[in-house]
Protein backbone atom coordinates (compact mmCIF):
# COMPACT_ATOMS: atom_id res chain seq x y z
CA UNK A 1 0.00 0.00 0.00
CA UNK A 2 2.86 2.37 -0.70
CA UNK A 3 0.59 4.22 -3.11
CA UNK A 4 -1.86 4.92 -0.32
CA UNK A 5 0.94 6.13 1.92
CA UNK A 6 2.25 8.52 -0.70
CA UNK A 7 -1.21 9.78 -1.63
CA UNK A 8 -2.16 10.47 1.99
CA UNK A 9 1.10 12.18 2.88
CA UNK A 10 1.11 14.22 -0.33
CA UNK A 11 -2.40 15.42 0.34
CA UNK A 12 -1.48 16.35 3.90
CA UNK A 13 1.66 18.20 2.83
CA UNK A 14 -0.25 20.09 0.19
CA UNK A 15 -2.73 21.30 2.76
CA UNK A 16 -0.17 22.67 5.18
CA UNK A 17 -0.42 26.35 5.98
CA UNK A 18 3.12 27.67 6.36
CA UNK A 19 1.82 31.04 7.51
CA UNK A 20 -0.30 29.68 10.34
CA UNK A 21 1.04 30.62 13.74
CA UNK A 22 2.81 27.75 15.44
CA UNK A 23 0.84 26.28 18.28
CA UNK A 24 2.44 26.62 21.64
CA UNK A 25 2.00 23.64 23.89
CA UNK A 26 5.07 23.63 26.11
CA UNK A 27 4.72 23.21 29.81
CA UNK A 28 5.65 26.71 30.99
CA UNK A 29 2.14 27.92 31.67
CA UNK A 30 0.82 24.63 32.86
CA UNK A 31 -1.08 24.36 36.05
CA UNK A 32 1.27 23.14 38.73
CA UNK A 33 -0.08 19.85 39.93
CA UNK A 34 -0.31 19.63 43.68
CA UNK A 35 2.80 18.02 45.07
CA UNK A 36 2.03 15.89 48.08
CA UNK A 37 4.20 14.91 51.01
CA UNK A 38 5.21 11.25 50.90
CA UNK A 39 2.62 10.28 53.55
CA UNK A 40 -0.15 12.18 51.80
CA UNK A 41 0.88 10.58 48.57
CA UNK A 42 0.55 7.11 50.01
CA UNK A 43 -2.81 7.96 51.60
CA UNK A 44 -4.06 9.38 48.32
CA UNK A 45 -2.89 6.27 46.47
CA UNK A 46 -4.58 3.96 48.96
CA UNK A 47 -7.87 5.88 48.95
CA UNK A 48 -8.04 6.07 45.19
CA UNK A 49 -7.33 2.38 44.78
CA UNK A 50 -9.86 1.37 47.41
CA UNK A 51 -12.48 3.52 45.66
CA UNK A 52 -12.25 1.16 42.69
CA UNK A 53 -12.57 -2.00 44.76
CA UNK A 54 -8.89 -2.77 45.15
CA UNK A 55 -7.72 -4.40 48.35
CA UNK A 56 -4.72 -2.44 49.61
CA UNK A 57 -2.48 -3.63 52.45
CA UNK A 58 -0.18 -1.09 54.05
CA UNK A 59 2.67 -3.45 54.91
CA UNK A 60 6.40 -3.08 55.45
CA UNK A 61 9.57 -4.81 54.29
CA UNK A 62 9.23 -7.10 57.30
CA UNK A 63 5.55 -7.88 57.15
CA UNK A 64 4.69 -8.25 53.47
CA UNK A 65 5.33 -12.00 53.36
CA UNK A 66 2.92 -12.49 56.26
CA UNK A 67 0.32 -10.32 54.57
CA UNK A 68 0.70 -12.26 51.33
CA UNK A 69 0.36 -15.48 53.30
CA UNK A 70 -2.87 -14.12 54.84
CA UNK A 71 -4.22 -13.09 51.45
CA UNK A 72 -3.63 -16.58 50.07
CA UNK A 73 -5.16 -18.25 53.11
CA UNK A 74 -8.25 -16.04 53.14
CA UNK A 75 -9.02 -17.17 49.61
CA UNK A 76 -7.95 -20.80 50.06
CA UNK A 77 -5.82 -20.54 46.94
CA UNK A 78 -4.59 -23.83 45.50
CA UNK A 79 -1.71 -22.29 43.65
CA UNK A 80 0.13 -19.04 43.06
CA UNK A 81 1.85 -18.01 39.85
CA UNK A 82 5.03 -16.10 40.71
CA UNK A 83 8.49 -15.72 39.24
CA UNK A 84 11.40 -17.10 41.28
CA UNK A 85 13.76 -14.74 39.45
CA UNK A 86 12.71 -11.43 40.99
CA UNK A 87 14.09 -10.44 44.38
CA UNK A 88 10.74 -10.76 46.13
CA UNK A 89 9.74 -13.78 44.09
CA UNK A 90 12.86 -15.51 45.37
CA UNK A 91 11.84 -14.66 48.93
CA UNK A 92 8.41 -16.20 48.33
CA UNK A 93 10.04 -19.34 46.94
CA UNK A 94 12.37 -19.44 49.96
CA UNK A 95 9.29 -19.60 52.17
CA UNK A 96 7.46 -21.92 49.80
CA UNK A 97 5.99 -24.20 52.45
CA UNK A 98 3.93 -21.29 53.82
CA UNK A 99 2.26 -20.75 50.46
CA UNK A 100 0.00 -22.67 48.10
CA UNK A 101 1.74 -24.56 45.30
CA UNK A 102 4.03 -22.08 43.54
CA UNK A 103 4.01 -22.01 39.77
CA UNK A 104 6.61 -20.42 37.57
CA UNK A 105 5.85 -18.85 34.17
CA UNK A 106 8.89 -20.60 32.74
CA UNK A 107 7.73 -21.38 29.20
CA UNK A 108 6.11 -19.55 26.31
CA UNK A 109 2.39 -18.98 26.60
CA UNK A 110 1.73 -21.40 23.71
CA UNK A 111 3.18 -24.26 25.74
CA UNK A 112 0.76 -23.95 28.62
CA UNK A 113 -2.09 -21.69 27.49
CA UNK A 114 -4.85 -24.04 28.67
CA UNK A 115 -3.36 -24.37 32.10
CA UNK A 116 -2.83 -20.62 32.38
CA UNK A 117 -6.46 -19.99 31.42
CA UNK A 118 -8.06 -22.62 33.60
CA UNK A 119 -5.76 -23.82 36.37
CA UNK A 120 -4.09 -20.76 37.85
CA UNK A 121 -5.82 -19.30 40.92
CA UNK A 122 -3.77 -16.15 41.40
CA UNK A 123 -0.64 -14.40 40.20
CA UNK A 124 1.90 -12.12 41.88
CA UNK A 125 3.81 -9.39 40.08
CA UNK A 126 6.06 -6.60 41.18
CA UNK A 127 5.24 -3.01 40.22
CA UNK A 128 7.45 -0.53 38.44
CA UNK A 129 5.80 2.30 40.31
CA UNK A 130 2.57 3.77 41.59
CA UNK A 131 0.60 6.95 40.87
CA UNK A 132 -1.14 8.75 43.73
CA UNK A 133 -3.38 11.10 41.73
CA UNK A 134 -5.29 8.32 40.00
CA UNK A 135 -4.60 5.31 42.24
CA UNK A 136 -2.62 3.46 39.62
CA UNK A 137 0.00 0.73 39.54
CA UNK A 138 2.60 0.79 36.76
CA UNK A 139 3.50 -2.63 35.40
CA UNK A 140 6.64 -3.14 33.35
CA UNK A 141 6.29 -6.73 32.07
CA UNK A 142 9.44 -8.66 31.15
CA UNK A 143 10.59 -12.25 30.61
CA UNK A 144 10.24 -12.98 34.33
CA UNK A 145 6.81 -11.41 34.73
CA UNK A 146 5.06 -11.65 31.33
CA UNK A 147 2.06 -9.58 30.24
CA UNK A 148 -0.56 -12.29 30.76
CA UNK A 149 0.53 -12.80 34.37
CA UNK A 150 -1.45 -9.74 35.37
CA UNK A 151 -4.30 -10.40 32.94
CA UNK A 152 -5.46 -14.00 32.75
CA UNK A 153 -5.57 -15.36 36.35
CA UNK A 154 -8.71 -14.31 38.26
CA UNK A 155 -6.76 -12.75 41.13
CA UNK A 156 -3.80 -10.42 40.70
CA UNK A 157 -1.56 -9.48 43.61
CA UNK A 158 0.88 -6.58 43.16
CA UNK A 159 3.88 -5.83 45.35
CA UNK A 160 4.69 -2.12 45.37
CA UNK A 161 7.37 -0.18 47.19
CA UNK A 162 6.05 3.00 48.75
CA UNK A 163 9.02 5.08 47.68
CA UNK A 164 8.10 4.39 44.08
CA UNK A 165 4.72 6.11 44.35
CA UNK A 166 4.72 9.33 42.32
CA UNK A 167 2.32 12.25 42.39
CA UNK A 168 1.02 11.76 38.87
CA UNK A 169 1.71 9.98 35.59
CA UNK A 170 3.64 12.89 34.12
CA UNK A 171 6.00 12.87 37.09
CA UNK A 172 6.49 9.10 36.91
CA UNK A 173 7.30 9.33 33.21
CA UNK A 174 9.69 12.21 33.78
CA UNK A 175 11.55 10.81 36.77
CA UNK A 176 11.75 7.28 35.38
CA UNK A 177 12.56 8.78 31.96
CA UNK A 178 10.31 6.45 29.98
CA UNK A 179 10.91 8.08 26.61
CA UNK A 180 14.65 7.48 26.80
CA UNK A 181 15.20 4.21 28.67
CA UNK A 182 13.29 2.09 26.21
CA UNK A 183 9.97 0.71 27.27
CA UNK A 184 9.10 -3.01 27.25
CA UNK A 185 6.78 -4.39 24.55
CA UNK A 186 3.86 -3.41 26.71
CA UNK A 187 3.52 -1.00 29.62
CA UNK A 188 0.35 -1.31 31.64
CA UNK A 189 -1.23 1.22 33.97
CA UNK A 190 -3.56 -0.67 36.27
CA UNK A 191 -6.25 1.11 38.25
CA UNK A 192 -8.45 -1.48 39.85
CA UNK A 193 -9.80 -4.84 38.74
CA UNK A 194 -11.48 -5.33 35.37
CA UNK A 195 -14.87 -3.63 35.29
CA UNK A 196 -17.73 -2.53 33.04
CA UNK A 197 -20.70 -0.21 33.25
CA UNK A 198 -22.05 -1.18 29.84
CA UNK A 199 -25.34 -2.48 31.24
CA UNK A 200 -27.48 0.38 32.53
CA UNK A 201 -24.38 2.30 33.64
CA UNK A 202 -24.16 -0.04 36.63
CA UNK A 203 -20.60 -0.97 37.60
CA UNK A 204 -19.79 -4.65 37.67
CA UNK A 205 -16.32 -6.10 38.31
CA UNK A 206 -14.29 -8.92 36.81
CA UNK A 207 -15.47 -8.80 33.21
CA UNK A 208 -12.47 -10.03 31.19
CA UNK A 209 -9.41 -9.29 33.29
CA UNK A 210 -8.80 -10.19 36.96
CA UNK A 211 -11.83 -10.12 39.24
CA UNK A 212 -9.73 -9.05 42.19
CA UNK A 213 -6.76 -6.73 42.47
CA UNK A 214 -4.75 -6.79 45.67
CA UNK A 215 -1.91 -4.34 46.29
CA UNK A 216 0.63 -4.94 49.06
CA UNK A 217 2.64 -1.82 49.89
CA UNK A 218 6.00 -1.95 51.57
Amino acid sequence: MNDARKAILDRLRLSQYPDSTPVKCDDQNDPVDPVLWPDERIDCFINRMRAVRTEVHDASHDSWLDILHGVCQARSLNNLLVSPHTRRGAMIYAAARRFPALKNYSQSIEDWKSELFTAVDAAVTSAYGGIAETGTVILWPDAREPRTLSLVPPIHIVLLEKNRIYNNLAEAMRIQNWAMIGMPSNVILLSGPSKSADIEQTMTYGVHGPKELIVILM
Binding site: T134, M183, P184, S185, N186, V187, L189, S191
Partner: peptide, 13 residues
Protein backbone atom coordinates in the same frame (compact mmCIF):
# COMPACT_ATOMS: atom_id res chain seq x y z
CA UNK B 1 -9.98 9.73 37.00
CA UNK B 2 -8.50 6.96 34.83
CA UNK B 3 -9.68 3.73 33.20
CA UNK B 4 -8.90 0.38 34.81
CA UNK B 5 -6.34 -0.24 32.07
CA UNK B 6 -4.11 2.05 30.08
CA UNK B 7 -2.33 -0.18 27.61
CA UNK B 8 0.84 1.14 26.00
CA UNK B 9 1.93 -1.13 23.19
CA UNK B 10 5.47 -0.61 21.95
CA UNK B 11 6.33 -3.71 19.98
CA UNK B 12 5.42 -7.30 19.17
CA UNK B 13 6.88 -10.09 21.29
Amino acid sequence: PITAYVNMINSPR
